[in-house]
Design a protein around this nucleic acid. Structure first.
Lengths: 264, 264
DNA sequence: AATAGCGTTTCAATAAATGAAACGCAACAC
DNA sequence: GTGTTGCGTTTCATTTATTGAAACGCTATT
């Protein structure tokens, strides 16, 4: 009965009971408001009894809670705690926060911090800009390596084998401006490595640009990337000299706070 | 076989399979580094095969991932996304962030933002102070209503029935200074409501004080509380006039950004 | 070479999840 | 007031899907 279309072929079974429970939890998180047991059961095509027992276990773990009055269910505090636990695995987050706010104040643009989790490029922290437009990006968003300023920075500063592995994957053309030719990208990455920053105008969303720089730790390994994100109206291509300077300075500030020192 | 000590008597069963899987996930989150399948299985007294299948399902949902090289398992990005989803249910978080940073800059003390989730008082956001000492508080931490400045503010500004319900519960004496007498607490709450702020010196940890003020939304309902937290050396009892002013101003600033207007 | 430990697979036994139906309780309609 | 509808919850027999032991490759260490 369990029909899933995500994984193509092999797969070593898995637990359908757990799968159902996680889908229930995911449903609760996706909905913005508490949901009734009946609606959860109907959405997942399961009996109320089954869902109820899973909700009981989930709430025993503090993952969901039941509204005292309405009897409806909603995701609970434990998810916040767990999320924060994951985030705090990255020293770069607390180290960068202050610099991010200052960078936002100097540039007025939204500031994002990315880290690499399990091979993926993930937005770890976001400081909203002071411009009118607000971007939909949130902590947890995954970015493409080939079509974002953050991703370019990572590609430019990782070792050759890893870079080639990432470039070998299909490069999604988000817009007509997205660079999808591996060779063109390699040429761009050489530039990024030389000058220390990357931008990606119109490559994911038309009229949006970003300007990113790498963050290194005391061992000289890249542990994050910092970027300002804003309309091309504010972050032109190429970016303003002052913006480049501000972003590079902020990233270096964070790197230094992590013990990084420039190689002589 | 499932022995749990949290809930006292009744309880309507629950799903042991799900329980095991969640304990596995919780274990991975608690450990700071990727764990081997064998160690998870041993810790939870389950067979490797069982744990493996649960990990497969968990990773299909993006909750855990397997390190490519070591083969070990670790919690994954989805937890960050879910945590952020819970947090963004509270409009007060983005609205307060800037004011929190400014308040930290003016007072040099750590700034915390609390909200009420499912009846509990939860730290939603934390800005580290500029003092030498760093506090262990993190987002997701739950606070007592009777023994914290945040809690006092909430007690003071909620309706009588709810307040009495909370005061009826046993009041844990964290330190000799913790107010555990309901009547003494009621008298204090009258004061809090009158002056608009609360403090709680030495009540959870000796030599630590906090100064909190409420945040209201456009309908005049309390949606959060803002506090500075620091050593009594920096936040005396009673707090400095300047500190009281700064905290009240910051809280009002956030309230106004949420559409609140002072009642004439 | 040999060993130890890992993640993974297989497979039969049985324990545990499941759905249908009934229950008690609200809120609402007539 | 009485009937109806919908909710969360409980019960229970059916059987499905979870389970652990053991065996399998594999890599790293001895």
């Amino acid at each position: 009965m369990t029909e899933r279309s995500s994984a193509p072929v092999k797969m070593t079974a898995g637990t359908s009971t757990l799968d159902l429970a996680l889908r229930a939890l995911e449903f609760l998180v996706a909905e913005g408001s508490p949901q009734s047991l009946a609606s959860i059961a109907k959405t997942l095509n399961a009996s109320k009894a089954t869902i109820l027992r899973h909700l009981v276990t989930l709430s025993a773990h503090g993952l969901v809670s039941q509204d005292r009055d309405s009897g409806r269910y909603e995701p609970a505090v434990k998810l916040l705690v767990w999320g924060e636990a994951i985030r705090s695995r990255f020293d770069v987050v607390p180290a960068a926060r202050d610099s991010m706010v200052r960078l936002r104040d100097r540039t007025s643009q939204a500031v994002t911090l990315c880290g690499r989790i399990d091979g993926q490029l993930v937005v770890l922290e976001l400081i909203q800009g002071r411009t009118v437009i607000e971007f939909g990006t949130r902590a947890g968003t995954r970015l493409d390596f080939h079509a974002s300023a953050h991703g370019r920075v990572w590609l430019a500063f990782t070792d050759d084998a890893e870079r080639e592995r990432l470039l070998a994957e299909p490069l999604k053309p988000w817009t007509p401006h997205t660079i999808v030719d591996p060779d063109a990208l390699r040429a761009e990455l050489v530039e990024v490595r030389r000058r220390g920053w990357a931008s990606a105008p119109d490559e994911i969303i038309i009229s949006v640009n970003a300007l990113a720089a790498p963050i290194f730790d005391h061992r000289g390994r890249q542990v994050g990337s910092l970027a300002i994100v804003g309309a091309t109206q504010f972050i032109p291509s190429p970016p303003l000299e002052s913006q480049i300077h501000d972003v590079l300075a902020a990233a270096e500030e964070v790197s230094r706070s992590l013990g990084w020192r420039p190689t002589p």
